[in-house]
Design a protein around this nucleic acid. Structure first.
Lengths: 126, 126, 126, 126
DNA sequence: GTGGTCTAGACCACT
DNA sequence: GTGGTCTAGACCACT
């Protein structure tokens, strides 16, 4: 359900926060639903539980998650709004990446190509 | 001529290397040309000279720049090839950014929009 | 300048956040001032740098500190307001402690005594 | 009769132990009296029975409670002494809380105020 | 030297 | 089993 890119310059914990908000945006997770457990996520993503815990703690501080000690984390009722804001952040980050690609000399045609092939790559995993 | 994004998760020194290679790719800088001075670049980009120096040192190690002590740095004759490889790296980084954006819940339509508006934004600065 | 109580049930990182806000409240640290370094504080308080870093990261998220990478942390211009809110939180925590003391059977007289002797204890360290 | 503060940094099971000793200190419960049932307490305090059970187990280990399997828990004959020691612990904890409040920037006047208003708040619940 | 991220692992509180 | 805090230590980016 979730994927992380260990080679990305974006810190793992930030990726995780974005991906979790993405699940809500996509409707795969809804307010009131139980979030995956910290340890379970760490195991399946092969990252350290502390890293997941940090992402979750920050999401809880933002009001996106409700933490119930000894029980688990739940998607907050206000999560949808937070997810929306997350989308805006993601757009900005993508725009940054595009500007960097341009700086590095990629033409808009090459960029379109990259978009297309990334789109195609998605189908393969389906 | 060169721009840096201090808010990007991509390290400044990597951005600098990519942008310098970009100038060669775009033909704005050619083999044999003198590269901008470390101090001048640091000043105009408002970053620490050490960071620029480090990027230049790495570019020299890669054979992209020729350093002449007491004179400055010159674009190496083999720079064009290096720049081409840089393009491939940039494409991969962009593909990563796209995958992250998808994880975060952006639809392909929203991504296209972002590409278009970034493209538009470029014109404004001209 | 700062003190931590390792035996307190209040997490060290929370104590640190409160104490730092206290320094601003007391006027010992002002907006624009450089905060103590993470490593320095960790050394002098004999706690782990990660714990200090966590407190600082949260204070930065709250807008109480401005972090300058490779340089250090600075008290934000808006810190005074944040410190004020911190005072309210501290009052609430003290009220909780008082209610617990009452539950545990302390009389108001014994509580007053404890307040007085704690006050006195402060003078000794001067 | 008993109250618990779920927001306190002091663990629930410690609060429970302190409160139970408080009932003895205040004379509301005497040696030989039957203690409230674990399940009943858990229900009325809305906490997990395991948490109450653990507090009782520890109190039994300290010799404050006598557990009679299949019957219930009874206040031990030596409970008064134990309760007295509990008072000392509570005083120390209150002193800690006061020092933290001072660190956080509360003046002694504000502390006195907080004491007074907590005292006043008690009357309201009567 | 200063901060940032991550891993590994211990121990605790609660369900 | 679930989350929380803390320590220890490695490695990185930037001034």
């Amino acid at each position: 359900m979730l994927e992380i890119d260990p080679t990305s310059p974006l810190p793992i914990n930030d990726q995780l926060k974005g991906a979790l908000k993405g699940l809500v945006t996509k409707g795969l997770l809804r307010p009131g639903d139980k979030a995956p457990s910290i340890r379970g996520l760490a195991l399946s993503l092969k990252i350290n539980p502390n890293t997941v815990a940090r992402a979750f703690r920050e999401l809880a501080l933002e009001g996106f998650l409700d933490t119930k000690r000894g029980d688990g984390n739940y998607i907050a009722q206000t999560a949808k709004g937070q997810a929306k804001e997350g989308l805006a952040v993601s757009k900005e980050r993508l725009a940054d990446a595009l500007r960097l690609a341009r700086q590095a000399g990629l033409s808009w045609d090459e960029i379109s190509e990259t978009v297309q092939s990334t789109k195609g790559g998605e189908d393969e995993t389906r």
